[in-house]
Design a protein around this nucleic acid. Structure first.
Lengths: 109, 109
DNA sequence: ATAATATATCATCATGTACTGATATGATGA
DNA sequence: TCATCATATCAGTACATGATGATATATTAT
């Protein structure tokens, strides 16, 4: 019965990937690859609504993928760890080769 | 209006991450890090149902994350690209530091 | 203190997605 | 051919999740 790695860690890993698996959150993280930004700058850069961005920032913050720092009435966000950016970069590279398959995959919307 | 990277590629990247964002699919890929396996071996190793595994293998295959090779009445699956494993490994490393946040994040189930 | 700006929170709704069980297909051997 | 084993497909159901709009909180300036 060759059972696999700790199911808890698999569930957690899946949850981590879900953090990356949404266009709004990805836009935020991609935007933050250029350096720290305030919420309103992120809103402008991504073109998403303020509440949308704020909701997703809360998610990313809770997950520990970004950190927030109050700056006057602004709040500046940045990526929390260089591995966040590495993960994005690696996904970009992989996507360069699997884009067509992913695009055409009917199992994911 | 500082707009960000190509929205198409953001959507595709999100879809790619969704491929990684499910416990069944992650179990499959983690299992395949040990080398190629037949469907029934994967079923046994992961403890998931046959239809569940088969459905998710179809998804991973369509996305180009795994490849399949018929071997008699068996079908052997393997990871399609070394970067798939790199992505898993990098996520593991990152998770080591953000596990508590991810675990407690209420925005993702 | 009040107004104005920046950000956060919350409930609702609509959609996406995974799991299951039943069944179909494909391959091998008798 | 027929039986059996391995894998794939499909429909239905239940749940998860994101977007939005309304509102709340926090900070600064007047």
């Amino acid at each position: 019965m060759l059972l696999n790695a700790n199911p808890t860690s698999i569930a957690l890993q899946a949850k981590l990937f879900r953090g990356f698996a949404d266009p709004s959150r990805l836009s935020i993280m991609e935007t933050l690859r250029d350096g720290e930004m305030t919420v309103s700058e992120i809103v402008e850069a991504t073109g998403h609504s303020q509440s949308n961005i704020s909701n997703h920032l809360a998610c990313l913050r809770d997950c520990g993928l970004v950190t927030a720092e109050q700056d006057g009435r602004y709040v500046r966000y940045r990526l929390s760890d260089p591995r966040v950016e590495e993960l994005l970069a690696l996904a970009d590279e992989l996507l360069a080769d699997v884009a067509r398959g992913v695009y055409e995959c009917i199992h994911l919307k």
